[in-house]
Simulated assay, not measured.
Amino acid sequence: MVSRCAPSVQQLESFLALAEELHFGRAAARLFVTQPALSRQLQALEERLDVLLVQRSRRHVEITAAGEALLPKARAVVEAMAGLCRAAGAHARQVDGRLVIGSIGAEAAMPYTRAILDELHTRHPRLRTSVRGLDLATHFDALERGEVDVMFLRPPVPAGIETLPLASEPRVACLPADDPLAGRDEVRLAELAGRTVVDIPPPCPRVWWRFWAADPRPDGSVVRYGPMVPDMEALLLAVSRGEAMAFLPAAARHFFPRPGVGYVAVPDLPPGTAALAWAARNRALPTIAAIRQAAAAVLRQAPAAR
């Protein structure tokens, strides 16, 4: 129970300002109050504590011995109250509820994804999250329909979806292991002209798959599409059977080694980007704002990882 003599934080702040300035006018200006208001706060504090804190005269302000003895405790109380307010504010800003996170390919296992989810859980421990693996054909559709709230994916994206770029990496050619080029360290894009590329069925936006198929080629040549594959396993199976090839992020070497499949660097192929994505209409929702902010914080902490 708080004693009836307990001073207010405002009274203690008035005392601290006066002790540092030793001038009523400067202390009042610092606190954005009038001098009479500052005098009343100090008088009320002295009455509550039943001790004289300041010796006043028209030209001189002096802190009494009792005031000097109480200064550290007054400062500690003010700092503790400020800390309490900060903690309460941080708690009030925590987001609860549920966030469904989509992921394609190996995005859920990438370092930036793990770092962002760790940061999100640190900031909002009451927020429940779940991660859903999505196939290549319908991942944008899942975001548009609200089956997932946000997604770790590989741009480009269709209209209506916003992204925060997270990292970039080279793309590689995914070839049948018996392809004459599969044993090379690298190939030029022109050397792959005429090879059939796997296709993705609707509702996948063409703007996305044309980028990943390198269509059109720099020389204007037409890309010939082959079998439609809805997901990564179907894509890799089609490649291993010699039905077609594909272009994938370089991380596929590590995450998707398969019998009958080889990966070859393509130095003149523009790199791909990884991003966090959300429907533009939902960007201000508290849960989506929370993961966007967590991602931005991770990028600020480790800019070299981008």
Rank of each mutant, 00 (worst) to 15 (best):
A115G: 04
D50K: 02
R123C: 07
L45N: 03
L52Q: 13
P125G: 04
I116T: 13
Q55W: 11
P216W: 05
R123S: 09
V157H: 13
D149E: 10
I291H: 00
L166I: 10
R253M: 12
E20H: 11
P205R: 01
E169C: 09
V187Q: 02
S221G: 12
I288A: 01
W209S: 11
A88F: 05
L12W: 06
W212Q: 08
R171S: 01
L117M: 12
A294D: 07
E47Y: 00
C204V: 03
W208A: 03
A275I: 10
L235Q: 12
P111Y: 05
S8R: 13
R56C: 01
V54M: 09
A238S: 14
A106D: 15
G183E: 08
L285M: 14
G220K: 06
P180Q: 05
T138I: 00
L153H: 12
D135Y: 03
D199A: 15
R171P: 10
Y112M: 12
C85H: 14
A69W: 09
S103F: 07
M1L: 08
T273V: 15
L248D: 00
V148D: 06
R93F: 08
V150C: 09
L248C: 10
V239M: 07
I161D: 01
V150Q: 06
R98L: 12
E243Y: 06
A66Y: 02
G220D: 05
G146W: 07
R258C: 04
V95C: 02
E119N: 00
R184D: 12
E169Y: 10
A275Q: 10
L12C: 07
A280I: 06
D96E: 13
A297H: 12
T34Q: 14
L49H: 00
Y263N: 01
L192D: 09
G89H: 11
P257R: 04
L235W: 02
P125S: 02
A289C: 04
L70E: 07
A142E: 12
V187N: 01
Q11C: 02
P218F: 14
L189F: 01
A6Q: 12
Q11M: 09
L70K: 00
A66M: 04
A265F: 05
P125L: 07
A76N: 02
A65C: 04
D141M: 06
V298E: 06
A234C: 09
R59W: 15
I200A: 00
A251Y: 08
A274C: 01
G262H: 09
P257W: 10
G262L: 02
R98F: 05
A137I: 13
R306N: 05
Q41S: 11
M232V: 15
R40N: 11
R145S: 13
V223W: 08
G262S: 15
M1V: 10
A275P: 12
I291D: 02
A190F: 06
Q35F: 00
Q10T: 13
L276S: 01
R126N: 10
D96H: 11
T287Y: 00
A37H: 15
V77K: 00
P36Y: 04
D179A: 07
V264Q: 08
D215F: 06
R59N: 13
G102N: 08
V187I: 15
